[in-house]
């Protein structure tokens, strides 16, 4: 045990994801030895994130303003909506630069073991948006794992009666990979989702 402030810093750091007691100790001592201005900048960054950043009122993506940059962007196609689990997924899709619609962040996936049902997700908000905004297509981009697939199934059941075009991200082979290294499930999905050649994209 170290004296008061050092120990409490180690304890706090140790609660962060992916950081065990040894790493926490190393980081704590790094902070102790580093220049004061650098560490105050770090402390400020943490404070800023907690005070300034909030969730966008429309899509629930992290944002510095009431409405995030994507929802404010007038050049975006307001008829398209991509439903994702977490804010990180928005960033991932944005990096592709192929999608020009808006988003809706659910805040997780249906997971009864973790006590998460549709009520804990922003499903009601999604339905409200679909009523208010003129959206023609909803793209379900939840993770291709069991919980994500279940969430997509749930949303499909909810949204089908609304009469909006629904689509699900394709799953299949990674680009630049080798067929022989693909696992059976992925390869099987790629077969199921194969596309006729010659159709216009």
């Amino acid at each position: 045990m170290y004296d008061g402030a050092v120990q409490s810093l180690i304890d706090e750091l140790g609660r962060l994801p992916g950081i065990g007691p040894k790493s926490a100790q190393r980081i704590a001592f790094h902070i102790l030895e580093a220049s004061e201005s650098d560490m105050i900048a770090l402390a400020d960054a943490i404070t800023d994130v907690k005070t300034k950043i909030r969730l966008c009122e429309i899509c629930f993506n992290v944002s510095e303003h009431k409405v995030c940059a994507i929802c404010r962007d007038e050049h975006r196609d307001t008829g398209l909506m991509c439903v994702v689990e977490e804010s990180q997924d928005v960033i991932a899709i944005e990096r592709t630069r192929t999608y020009n619609g808006r988003y809706h962040v659910l805040g997780g996936a249906i997971n009864p073991i973790g006590g998460i049902g549709p009520d804990q997700l922003r499903v009601r908000e999604l339905l409200t948006r679909l009523q208010d905004e003129s959206i023609s297509e909803v793209i379900l981009a939840t993770n291709p794992n069991l919980e994500g697939e279940a969430t997509a199934t749930y949303l499909t059941r909810m949204l089908s009666p609304v009469g909006i075009t629904l689509s699900r991200l394709a799953s299949g082979l990674p680009v630049g990979g080798d067929l022989e290294y693909a696992d059976e499930v992925t390869l099987g999905r790629a077969f199921e989702g194969r596309r006729k050649l010659g159709e216009t994209l």
């Binding site: 006590g115 549709p118 697939e149 279940a150 059941r157 909810m158």
Partner: peptide, 23 residues
């Protein structure tokens, strides 16, 4: 299990159960 206690079964349970049935 989460909806087993009397009165704890909600519409939400009902609609999610349909999803899990499918899977």
């Amino acid at each position: 299990k989460s909806g087993r206690k009397p009165g704890s079964w909600t519409d939400e349970h009902e609609s999610t159960l349909a999803v899990w049935n499918e899977h």
